[in-house]
Design a binder for these strands. Structure first.
Lengths: 101, 101
DNA sequence: CCATAAGGTAAGCCTTGACTTACGGATCAT
DNA sequence: ATGATCCGTAAGTCAAGGCTTACCTTATGG
């Protein structure tokens, strides 16, 4: 379960805000930057990080770049914490029953 | 959905390794440090961060401190990504059907 | 062909934070 | 009481990375 999860790429607040915004639908870089408290290059750099982590993908439309969420990546994150929950719950139950050292 | 999620506290690899180890069952600080590639104070500091984030709790047993996962926190993380997935999937479906601006 | 719009990239600043060593405070055994 | 164990905290170092400004490339429109 200690597998290649992209949590680190999602930790910075600004980056996660961008990612959450993209979950609501695709967007251009400029449109994203317009609603964020940081500069456009900063958004670009975050998008690059997200893309490198496989969390988003890019499409061109004229001079605009359209970024959208990569659903499979979200599914992996969900599955990761689902399993995490299972493991933790199982350990808790075992700690109640078989109280051996 | 942009609520107080503890992702940042879970991002550092060493810290996540500690957290994953604790998911398998409670442990003392020394036992944790023995299986990690960092010093014991480093583990202590990570545990403090996890505790501040509400991800783990602490119990005393003699001179030993026993740390264990806080199941509710894991549930919150799971729910966060579950909802994330729902939002992303819904947006994707809408992008297929009603293709209006 | 030229102007404009959109956005990636480079260089640099500066804070954050992960880690180490050194130390101090509790608790248990003798 | 004394030594030993277990652990948190302080102080300091050093690399990572988030952000900005400046610049360059690419694509559309007249």
């Amino acid at each position: 379960m200690t597998y290649g999860i992209k949590l680190e790429a999602l930790a910075p607040p600004t980056r996660r805000a961008i990612f959450e915004r993209l979950a609501a639908g695709p967007s251009s870089v400029g449109a994203l930057a317009a609603m964020m408290p940081v500069s456009r290059p900063a958004v670009s750099q975050h998008l690059k990080a997200l893309k490198d982590a496989g969390l988003v993908s890019e499409t061109r439309d004229g001079t605009a770049r359209i970024y959208r969420i990569e659903p499979q990546a979200v599914a992996e994150l969900r599955d990761y914490f689902d399993r995490f929950w299972d493991v933790a719950l199982d350990a808790y139950k075992r700690s109640l029953e078989g109280g051996d050292a």
